[in-house]
Design a protein around this nucleic acid. Sequence first.
DNA 1: TGGCTTATTGCAACGTGTTGCGATAGACTC
DNA 2: GAGTCTATCGCAACACGTTGCAATAAGCCA
Lengths: 152, 152
Amino acid sequence: MASASEPTGTLATRLQAAVQARGQRWTEQRQLIADVLAASDGHATGAELVERVRAADPSATPSTVYRTLDLLEELGFATHHHGVDGRETYHLEEVVAHGHVHCQGCGAEVELNADLAQPILAAIERATGYAADLDHLSLQGRCPSCRAAAAR
Amino acid sequence: MASASEPTGTLATRLQAAVQARGQRWTEQRQLIADVLAASDGHATGAELVERVRAADPSATPSTVYRTLDLLEELGFATHHHGVDGRETYHLEEVVAHGHVHCQGCGAEVELNADLAQPILAAIERATGYAADLDHLSLQGRCPSCRAAAAR
DNA sequence: TGGCTTATTGCAACGTGTTGCGATAGACTC
DNA sequence: GAGTCTATCGCAACACGTTGCAATAAGCCA
């Protein structure tokens, strides 16, 4: 992944440099989309991002937003995964890599940071030989309280 | 997880019994959809199933197919999960519960049976307290050969 | 058999995301 | 500064899946 090791400015600045280094262009729309993504610092679905971008610039179209998100992903500045309902959820790579665990009973969702996930990833590697990607680790199951309720 | 322990007939027969036991109705469309799902004995996306059902009965509509699939799922005869691209993939519960691991490098996909997955599920439970659902275990990462290629 | 209740269906519209294409405009060369 | 190349944009159409509603028909009871 790109050398995000020495942040020499804001996200938008670094992103602009990365885009231009590839011979691609930095436009107002891309700036806006990067700003919106940075402002929604947790997770945001594609539709939410489209809506926010259009609120700031009604001339922006969904295709532009999705294509820019793809570009951010290619450059290693963002990732996306599919949530429980199949909707896309994007977040900035700045946010440390993490996975999700969703409860099928009550809908609760907890985040899995690298420390918590480490033994899980190790178990996956032992079982399959695959090096699993924490950012795409999206588990479903039953949370402790739903399990307790079901046991009764 | 209905008691699939004593199959007293074909899938469609058992399904019909289960549907009628709930005071619901057994129709030709449901029979057809069950047959199609049984015939596509691996995995099939929603769109594929719709297409096959319509090939057999052009008067069937997507909404009917999806609603019937939801019903099968409610009754425990089928499950679905979201694949890498967010598409829905359905399969019969008859197939033993299993997860998937998808390689981001070469696209290879391996199945995780209960034995292989057991230590992974145990690690998830230790880390989070959640009892993860094997049927919804859909991992992404890098397969051993792609990792070796990347290391070079 | 006839009538009633209501589950199921088909249709149409919508939401989310993707793709192709022509028009636009930014960047580069001379 | 003029001309050229091409990345990007907006539009329109499409694919997949979901939902609301009115019409239909299955199942039940008398």
